[in-house]
Design a protein around this nucleic acid. Structure first.
Length: 303
DNA sequence: GTCCAGGTCGCGC
DNA sequence: GCGCGACATGGA
């Protein structure tokens, strides 16, 4: 087993821990967050088929700006293409290329708003690929968080490729693996319930090249068009589409889901029933940053 | 048993 | 375009 050290340069400011823990993804396999060492681990299957384990943490040398340290555990030495792929995956996961400076300025200006955003925070962890983010998202609909974790864990355990010599560590399953498993397996073994058909369709479409998810990452795509395309995916309704827009760095679209309704009603309307228009008005001043404003809006603490 | 979870689909008006 | 029941599963 080889360990290869890579570094990536984050934007300034950048808070590694805040980014890794900004939402629940870090608790979903094959992500693993270690509180003691502040390390984010994820087994990753490269396009070549090689399965590696990535350990990400903040690196710092005296006096220098912090960097992202990537510890790659691998059986075979990395080819140049594999190294590029790993760097790209890490930059996507941590959103190292996203410019949040305008959001930070708004946070600073809006004195009345004390969002839970530290300098360098506000980046919500993503998977290495959009496919994985969509699968995660489908596993968050109409289910408790404990159930989400269970579904994703079973998917990874049963269909992910093992890290060499340590089968308890597995990569997230490929579209081909999920497609090959088929809806009956997903239903009976993964216990995906009514999501089984959606998941099987999605995986097959991606595996067979009928669905080009990379095209959805095109920044020049207008958000309404992107939303329309996401909604065409079976199982992706208003909540899931808004979550995926967030994943894709589009924060101007708020989804009015049960969590938001509860939060806004409780914090701004004394728990009274609140219209959708009233709820939208709360975050409207944030314009294209509404989702982040909502996400980091501290809940009322009812002592 | 019953209810419902950070919903979504497909139908009927 | 909007309302409504059905949909799997598992935990409270």
């Amino acid at each position: 087993m080889l360990t290869i050290l890579l570094q990536e340069t984050p934007p300034v400011p950048f808070d590694f821990e805040a980014t890794a823990r900004a939402h629940g993804w870090a608790a979903l396999r094959p992500f693993e967050w270690d509180t003691a060492s502040l390390t984010l681990t994820r087994v990753h299957r490269l396009d070549s088929g090689q399965v590696v384990r990535l350990r990400l943490s903040e690196g710092r040398v005296n006096g220098s700006a912090p960097f992202v340290e990537i510890r790659v555990e691998t059986v075979e030495p990395l080819t140049a293409a594999e190294e590029v792929e790993i760097r790209r995956a890490v930059r996507r996961m941590l959103r190292l290329d996203e410019d949040l400076s305008e959001f930070y300025e708004l946070c600073a200006q809006n004195g009345g708003w004390s969002l839970r955003v530290k300098p360098g925070g506000g980046r919500l962890l993503r998977c290495p690929t959009l496919f994985e983010d969509i699968v995660y998202t489908l596993c968050t609909t109409n289910i408790t968080w404990a159930g989400t974790k269970r579904l994703v864990e079973r998917l990874t355990e049963r269909l992910g490729e093992p890290f060499p010599g340590q089968a308890e560590w597995r990569a997230f399953p490929t579209p081909a693996a999920i497609a090959a498993a088929g809806p009956d397996f997903l239903r009976q073994e993964i216990r995906l319930g009514y999501r089984s058909g959606y998941m099987a369709d999605l995986a097959a479409a991606v595996a067979e090249g009928r669905l080009d998810l990379a095209g959805l990452e095109d920044p020049s795509l207008p958000t309404p068009e992107l939303l329309r395309r996401l909604r065409q995916l079976k199982g992706v309704g208003p909540y899931a589409a808004a979550t995926l827009l967030m994943i894709l760095g589009r924060y101007e679209h708020l989804a009015i889901d049960t969590e938001l309704v509860g939060h806004v009603s409780k914090k701004y309307f004394s728990g009274q029933p609140t219209s959708e228009a009233e709820m939208r008005a709360i975050y409207a001043p944030w314009g294209k940053w509404q989702y982040l404003a909502y996400w980091f809006d501290p809940p009322v603490t009812d002592r």
